[in-house]
Design a protein around this nucleic acid. Structure first.
Lengths: 126, 126
DNA sequence: CGGAATCCACTACGATACTG
DNA sequence: CAGTATCGTAGTGGATTCCG
C-alpha cells in the first residue's frame, strides 16, 4: 500500500490552509478560552496570555472569516465587542483541547527525552 | 467560574512549547505520513509535499528531540535513514490525524463562510 | 475599550551549493 | 541519498501611536 487516496488528496488540496489555521501557535489557546464562555477582546487577551493585540486581532479575523467565531459589537461607550464560538468553532475546539491536554500530559516525558537528546548531541566542548 | 486552574496552568506553563511543536505547519502532515509506515527522508519529503528539505530536517530534529520519532541510520552507501514513530509520537499522531480530517471535512463549509465574509468586508471599490 | 496603522527587529523559509 | 552551510528575501510579530 504505497499511498492512500486520503494522503494524496490532503497533499494536493487547498484545504491545507485550513489545517494551517488550526495548526497555528495561538488558535488552540484562543478556541480553548472561548470554549468555556464568550470573551471580550482584552479579556481574551489576558486569558490566552502572551499574545500581542496585533496577533490576537489577526487570529480572530481569520477565525471569524472561516466561521469558527462570531464577533458581536455592542454600541456602548466605550465599545464592547464579544467573541464567541460558532457551532463549527466548537467542534474544532474539542479537537484542539485534546491536543492541548496531550501537551500538558506528556510534558514531563518530553522534558526527559530532551535532556537525553541534548546530552547525546552536544558532546563535551572543552 | 472566572478561570479554571487548567487555564492558568496552561497559560503559565513552559509546556506551551510542546503545543507549539504540535501546532506547527508541518507536524501534522509529517506524523500523519509516518503513522502509516516508517519513511526514508526523501520519501517522507514527497509524502508530505511542498516542504523544503531544510524545514523537514528541522522538524524531524525537533520531533526526534521530543521523542516523537526515531531516526535510524543504516550504514549503506548511499546512506539510508529511516524515520518512524515512537509510542509517544503515535499517540500524538492520532490527535493530529483527527485535526487533519476535520480540515478536509469542513473545507467546503469554510469556503462558503469565506465567500460571505469577503463580500461583506470588501465593499465595492469603484 | 477595541482596534487600525506605522515602524522595525527578527527569523522563518526557500534556493543554491557543497559534503560524506 | 541525506544531509550541512550560506545567503537572501519575505513575512512574523512586538512596541508604539493614534482613532472611534
Amino acid at each position: 500500500m504505497p499511498e492512500s487516496p486520503w494522503d494524496i488528496y490532503l497533499r494536493n488540496c487547498p484545504c491545507r490552509d485550513v489545517l494551517d489555521l488550526l495548526a497555528n501557535k495561538w488558535t488552540a489557546l484562543v478556541l480553548g478560552a472561548l470554549s468555556r464562555r464568550p470573551h471580550r477582546f482584552g479579556e481574551l487577551r489576558r486569558a490566552v496570555g502572551g499574545i500581542s493585540q496585533k496577533m490576537l486581532t489577526q487570529n480572530l479575523r481569520a477565525l471569524e472569516r472561516d466561521g469558527l467565531v462570531t464577533r458581536t459589537v455592542f454600541p456602548t461607550t466605550p465599545p464592547t465587542v464579544e467573541y464567541a464560538l460558532t457551532e463549527r468553532g466548537s467542534s474544532a475546539s474539542k479537537l484542539l483541547m485534546a491536543v492541548s491536554e496531550w501537551s500538558v500530559a506528556n510534558f514531563d516525558g518530553i522534558l526527559e527525552s530532551r535532556k537525553g537528546y541534548d546530552s547525546r548531541v552536544m558532546e563535551p566542548v572543552g
